[in-house]
């Protein structure tokens, strides 16, 4: 099996889901080629040369110096025609959702997205709001697949070496029809959820805005950063850059301490890669407990102040 893994250049660093996609690619095939686009792909290549890959292909064309769906999908098409992979692999990121279907249509190759695991016969994907799993397969000789966050762990990345090769893409300015402005944040914060070792995460169970400082106090006592679920951010109790989930950050801290979060699938996809998950929730049926390593069925408002006090004391 020849695998082509499409990497995401996240402002000069490699997207976490791209690392997990490399693990998936290494498990799927003998020969793994990685493709990276963008003006600062040199930085990404620096990270990659320590991994067991056949080669890294870089594309430095002006028209794909920053992300656009037209340019990216055309480059992936050209690289695919040139190196004929059996499977094209990517992390199921927002960027993948935006351009990978175009690659699928250009090549006439099926795209099975958001896979959570591999099975003997095919690929496992969540359906019906994650209430059921489905096994999917394809008869196509070539296939595009993308993996949900935490389908694989980046700790399983196989080290090794690889060569680097520049690919000359043929792109025409008239083929890039959209004009993308600079990405921006509504509320800029210097909080880096990605690199926090511990996250204390607030959900609706905190009940009201006045209780939010309880989470910040606990985070301070633990040396943690504070994150939140979407309802809390939508209510304006916590800044949007702290949001974890499919529309927020994808995190994988050493400990994810969830306070009153029910665990809807949109939230869970963003944090289930955490090494340890501890959850407090009043509702014993809260879905968060299905993925928790430590479950406390109880009242956040009662337990959290006592815990903060105990940690401060010691």
């Amino acid at each position: 099996m020849d695998i082509l893994v499409i990497l995401e250049n996240n402002q000069g660093s490699l997207h976490r889901l791209s690392k997990e996609a490399i693990v998936a690619a290494q498990k799927l095939g003998k020969s793994v080629t990685a493709l990276v686009m963008g003006s600062d792909s040199d930085k990404i290549v620096g990270h990659l040369t320590g991994y067991d890959l056949e080669k890294v292909i870089t594309v430095g064309h002006d028209l794909v110096s920053s992300y656009n769906a037209d340019g990216y999908s055309e480059v992936v098409r050209q690289v695919t025609e040139s190196c004929s992979p059996n499977i094209i692999v990517a992390g199921h990121t927002y960027q993948t959702r935006d351009f990978m279907p175009r690659v699928s249509a250009k090549l006439g190759v099926p795209f099975i997205p958001d896979i959570v695991s591999l099975s003997d016969q095919g690929f496992i994907k969540q359906v019906l709001n994650a209430k059921l799993n489905a096994e999917m397969s394809s008869t196509s000789e070539r296939l595009i697949i993308s993996f949900q966050s935490a389908a694989f762990s980046e700790e399983e990345l196989r080290p090794g070496s690889c060569s680097v090769e520049a690919f000359e893409a043929t792109l025409d300015a008239s083929g890039v029809r959209s004009i993308s402005e600079e990405p921006f944040q509504e509320e800029a914060g210097d909080v880096d959820l990605d690199s926090a070792e511990i996250l204390v995460s607030v959900g609706r169970g905190i009940e009201k805005e006045e209780n939010v400082p309880l989470a910040f106090d606990l985070a301070k006592a633990m040396g943690a950063e504070v994150s939140a679920s979407r309802p809390v951010v939508d209510s304006g109790w916590v800044e949007s850059f702290r949001q974890v989930g499919s529309s927020g950050s994808n995190v994988a801290p050493k400990l994810y301490f969830s306070l009153g979060i029910s665990g809807a699938i949109q939230h869970v996809v963003g944090m289930k890669g955490a090494k340890n998950i501890m959850a407090i929730n009043k509702d014993p049926d809260a879905p968060i407990f299905e993925i928790a390593d430590y479950a406390v069925i109880g009242d956040v408002l009662e337990i959290v102040p006592k815990l903060t006090e105990a940690l401060d004391r010691s």
Binding site: S180, E181, E182, F184, S247, G248
Partner: peptide, 12 residues
């Protein structure tokens, strides 16, 4: 909507 609280305007 991009990830991690980022947004982008695109004109088509």
């Amino acid at each position: 909507e991009l990830e991690s609280g980022w947004f982008q305007w695109v004109q088509l």
